[in-house]
Nucleic acid binder design. Structure first.
Lengths: 196, 196
DNA sequence: TTAATATTTAACATTTTTGTTAAATAAAGA
DNA sequence: TCTTTATTTAACAAAAATGTTAAATATTAA
């Protein structure tokens, strides 16, 4: 593997790949070092401890999720267009890194710490207000805007998170599943934002 | 804790509680023994190794998911009633054990083994056929029946699986979140099975 | 009761994972 | 160049987790 951005970054990126892309939540520092093709001591040299590496990775995962949200909500698109964009971006991102949320969830459970997050005021609150407004306009089904948001993220995230189970139960091949995930962009939009 | 069903069962039940209810996927045999209030050696006495305990727990998790499916599909209810029942049962079950699927997913990823499951022919295939039929009747929106099924399970499972993230981002209290999950039974049904 | 069996415990051993130290090598600046 | 600093490695140490053994206790059936 190329170490263009330096070894420290390489280690962190490799850890993310193992956790977020491969879903190997039990990976050890040795596993990470091996995958990165470096001596395990470097993990300690750059991060001092496994715990700190994990915390950095978790913090950046959270930051990445924030980025997705903010990338959508800058610019003056209509709600409808924002929604389309969010679905497309989120599904693309999550297809590449399906287990990122899962990592956050399990790390949070591991240390019995809920997450007090600032993303609420900057992104979630305005988004919920937009949803409310769109309901008042009669464009989407009226419900608790938070339920709307939960529905949206459920439909986007779950099939990628649980692809192993879905594919197993429904006997869908890897290739076809990818196709289906692409189709979901349109499908989710139509469910959430019905034409009439 | 009472050991009515014997210590072996107690250990297994405790492991399930830690994995499925608390989402502590990194729990050690010591953690499990402590939570069960027994000597760790008993884990080895009854299960020989940590690996075997995990495999048994995973196999039973899978069996429990099958049970949910079959409990719905015996009896001669209409599709509409089956759907209502499935949503209600699944959400109740998953509220109690939100991380059961997550355990299966991570254990599957850990050992690079997909799951070749017999549940397909007995439950999933007939369910998909029912969905198709209902679409032909014009009762539900026409789409790939597998997408319908994915939507259904996404809407049911994800909010419970990712409750930590949802509550954190949207600033919802534990108590209120439970209320919202109850409301989702009706809400999901209406999304999936629209009145007109 | 007693002998056989099942269950539980403590002590020990091994393996795995994590963390530390010091030395070797490479890179960069004076 | 030489000297300082950064990076990497190997060897070692400590801790954590898993697995094994044998003895103690409880249970059961003859």
């Amino acid at each position: 593997m190329v170490k263009d951005k330096g070894t420290e970054q390489l280690i962190k990126d490799t850890a993310k790949k193992i956790f977020f892309a491969e879903g190997k939540l039990h990976a050890t520092t040795q596993d990470i070092a091996d995958a990165a093709g470096v001596n395990r001591t470097l993990v300690h040299y750059y991060f001092r401890s496994r715990k700190i590496l994990f915390e950095q990775v978790a913090e950046e995962a959270l930051e990445e999720l924030r980025q997705i949200m903010s990338s959508i909500f800058i610019g003056k698109l209509s709600f409808k267009e924002k929604l389309k964009k969010l679905i497309s971006v989120f599904i693309d991102e999550t297809s590449a890194l399906p287990y990122r949320e899962l990592f956050l969830i399990t790390e949070t459970n591991r240390h019995n710490q809920g997450l007090e997050d600032q993303v609420h005021d900057t992104h979630v609150k305005p988004f919920l207000a937009d949803i409310k407004e769109e309901m008042d306009k009669g464009n989407i089904t009226v419900m608790d805007p938070r339920q709307f948001m939960i529905n949206l993220f459920s439909l986007m995230a779950y099939p990628l998170l649980a692809s192993t189970l879905s594919k197993g139960f429904m006997r869908i091949s890897d290739h076809e599943y990818i196709q289906m995930m692409k189709q979901r962009k349109q499908l989710i939009f139509e469910m959430i934002y019905p034409n009439k």
